[in-house]
Amino acid sequence: MRLINGRRRFLIAMACMTAARVIPARAAADPLADFGGRDGIKAIVDDLELNYMSDARLRPFFANVDRKRISQQLTIQFCSLLGGGCEYTGANMKGVHRGLGITMEDFNALIEALQDAMDKNKVAFRAQNRLLALLAPMHRDIVEA
């Protein structure tokens, strides 16, 4: 070990850190563990509903719809996306958002509402980002204005 010079030791340390980042332990156990299981996801979605209804940018999109059903569907969808063993059979994203005139700033506002809900439910930032990474590509089906 003493033969390894400073730079090589630094590179090895960096490689180990990188490996630790790229191959995390998340493959093990319950994929919903970071979110408090299915109950945790339901609590997050309930808080999301509170958040979007108290946000002037978002409220108009949800004021006259069946929010209970939306929350049920979102709970199943999040669970399904995270590999939690739920089967999402709900509406097609493009279909249900067609004609609503949702802008990029609306889409981002909902992401912020979800981040706040996950913060409130003590979901770790890195776990939050894993869910957001699964949701973000849906902007292509949802944003149209």
Binding site: L58, P60, A63, L100, E105, D106, N108
Partner: peptide, 19 residues
Amino acid sequence: AQLAAPPVTTDALYGGKLL
């Protein structure tokens, strides 16, 4: 405002990107 609100919001002119 809710009663009168059209289905589409009047969006802000700035600040819509994520932090």
